[in-house]
């Protein structure tokens, strides 16, 4: 999946001839400062935002894990999943894998932030997406829950291995989950790395000379 895009809002130019190529069947993690255009990039790939330029190889079936869960308040967890086109036969399995079986018939107002985010994740996976977009899906969760969700995410991802773009502020998360890690800077790819891995996700806090070198490069040390 690749593209060349230009995008500006009324008072701000976000991308000028921004060229990218995200490997198919892999997870690309995108880091960058606030306002650099990470969410805009996801919205362009999800066809939610208009832009100038071209995209190629972008799959039609998209699953989007929004930063806030965006669940319909008057529908139960199961109804929310079915609303987004989930296969009813797979709902129970995915809910079980994400530890949500007990919440199937509950309304979103009865769920905690972490549980809602897992439903958000379940919805994206149950949509049989060929392109998975994740916008800081694990932000605002405590570390223990975050690491659990990384594992749950990785297990589900391995089943179909959809092309995935994950936006995050957390280098640890990007290093743990991404096959490729990109840092956006001034509307361009400022830095990139491909962490060596044998498993997904890498254990939390896994130190490597590579990660340290990448961090030093980002920080300009």
């Amino acid at each position: 999946m690749k593209g060349l895009i230009n995008k500006s809002y009324e008072t701000k130019r976000v991308f000028t001839d921004f060229a990218f190529a995200f490997p198919d069947g892999e997870i690309t993690c995108v880091l960058g400062a606030s306002g650099v255009g990470k969410t805009t990039l996801l919205n362009i790939l999800a066809r939610l935002t208009e832009f100038d330029g071209e995209l190629s190889g972008v799959p039609a079936k998209v699953g989007y894990v929004f930063q806030d869960p965006r669940l319909i308040p008057h529908l139960t967890v199961e109804e929310n999943l079915l609303y987004a086109g989930a296969n009813p036969e797979k709902v129970d399995t995915v809910l079980e894998k994400l530890g949500l079986s007990a919440y199937k018939n509950k309304y979103p107002s009865k769920l905690s932030g972490g549980e809602k985010q897992r439903v958000n994740l379940a919805r994206a996976f149950l949509s049989d997406a060929e392109l998975l977009l994740l916008d800081e899906p694990f932000a605002a969760l405590d570390t223990a829950l975050k690491i659990r969700l990384w594992k749950e995410f990785a297990l589900l991802w391995e089943e179909k291995r959809p092309t995935t773009v994950l936006v995050t502020h957390d280098l640890e998360e990007a290093w743990a989950l991404g096959h490729t890690v990109l840092v956006l800077k001034d509307g361009k790819i400022g830095y990139s790395a491909r962490p060596k891995r044998t498993e997904l996700p890498l254990p939390y806090g896994a130190q490597s000379a590579e990660k340290s070198a990448f961090l030093r490069e980002i920080l300009g040390e």
């Binding site: 999800a46 066809r47 939610l48 319909i72 609303y83 949509s127």
Partner: peptide
């Protein structure tokens, strides 16, 4: 946001 979500899916 729910309308957007519906469009995406």
């Amino acid at each position: 946001e729910l309308v957007e979500m519906s469009r995406v899916y």
